[in-house]
């Protein structure tokens, strides 16, 4: 991949310089220069090749829930930094920065709202919040989200985006994988419908728990989805990874997701699944 990129840069050495600041952005897949206001109108997808750019959780909420129906849930939970974790940075400082930047307390936000009048519980992960990593708060919010969906007999949808478990919370973060999966098992036993939507990137402990436990699993085109990180795999096998490895299309081919759905058809697809599977 690095080789590929270098080659492209050699062929178009001036293209990089030609992008004016601010209003224009280059598509990482097809190198098309995109006008940002138009990109936003297209839900941050490339008009030429359909590349799905990462988007903020707020945009996803607007994309999926009926206007005016969203109600934010469980906003009072905050990580304690019980281990007083410190690497190069202090975890507590990292948390505070992420909270300030995002305006959220942690890497997942929960909402109740409607899809064309059908009530759902929606969780949306934020990759910009410490890599969308799952610690105690993410785990607890997911458990509460599942409980609420069960209580209201409505479907649960989670938009996944995560680098995995949050190392800064040590084993507490690891155990959230078991905690969320166990809660989903109970929900499933009560005929609860859980739709998992995998966006770029969904990896590590999130993939190896709730993300892969959807009754229906959808993914955005091109989303990176896997358990092990690409750098670690590369080191282990000592060679470059095949093109498209761990992308949504690869997972579809291998049989691990139900379908690939573009952002523009995500809401109507979710609605269809809910209306057919969750009919009362």
């Amino acid at each position: 991949m690095d080789w590929f990129r270098r080659k492209i840069e050699k062929i178009h050495p001036v293209q990089k310089k030609a992008i004016p600041d601010g209003l224009w952005i280059k598509c990482p897949t097809c190198s098309e220069i995109l006008y940002k206001p138009e990109l936003e109108r297209l839900l941050s997808t490339c008009r030429k090749c359909g590349h799905h750019f990462r988007i903020s959780p707020d945009i996803y909420v607007k994309l999926i829930l009926d206007e005016g129906s969203a109600e934010t849930l469980f906003t009072d939970l905050k990580s304690n930094d019980m281990l007083h974790f410190r690497a190069i940075k202090r975890y507590s400082a990292q948390l505070n920065t992420a909270i300030k930047k995002s305006g959220n307390q942690d890497a997942i936000q929960f909402y109740s709202g409607d899809i064309e009048g059908n009530p759902i519980v929606l969780g949306v992960m934020n990759f910009a919040f410490i890599g969308g990593s799952m610690g105690s708060v993410v785990g607890e919010k997911i458990v509460r989200g599942i409980s609420l969906a069960e209580e209201r007999s409505c479907p649960l949808i989670i938009i996944c985006a995560s680098g995995g478990a949050r190392m800064q919370e040590g084993s507490y973060s690891l155990m959230q994988m078991a905690k969320t999966s166990a809660r989903l098992a109970r929900f499933s036993g009560k005929q609860g419908l859980f739709i998992s939507v995998l966006t770029d990137p969904t990896t590590g402990g999130v993939t190896a728990s709730f993300a892969m436990l959807g009754d229906v699993i959808l993914a955005e085109p091109g989303a990176l989805v896997g358990f092990a990180g690409q750098r670690v795999i590369k080191q282990t096998i000592g060679q470059d990874l095949p093109p498209g490895f761990q992308r949504a299309e690869f997972l579809l081919e291998k049989g691990f997701i139900d379908n690939i759905v573009t952002r523009s058809t995500m809401k109507s697809t979710l609605l269809k699944i809910i209306l057919i599977l969750h009919a009362k």
């Binding site: 166990a182 098992a185 190896a208 728990s209 993300a211 358990f227």
Partner: peptide, 11 residues
């Protein structure tokens, strides 16, 4: 499907 296999076991 390493991720799926682990997730399934937790479940």
């Amino acid at each position: 499907g390493q991720g799926e296999a682990i997730a399934r076991n937790l479940f």
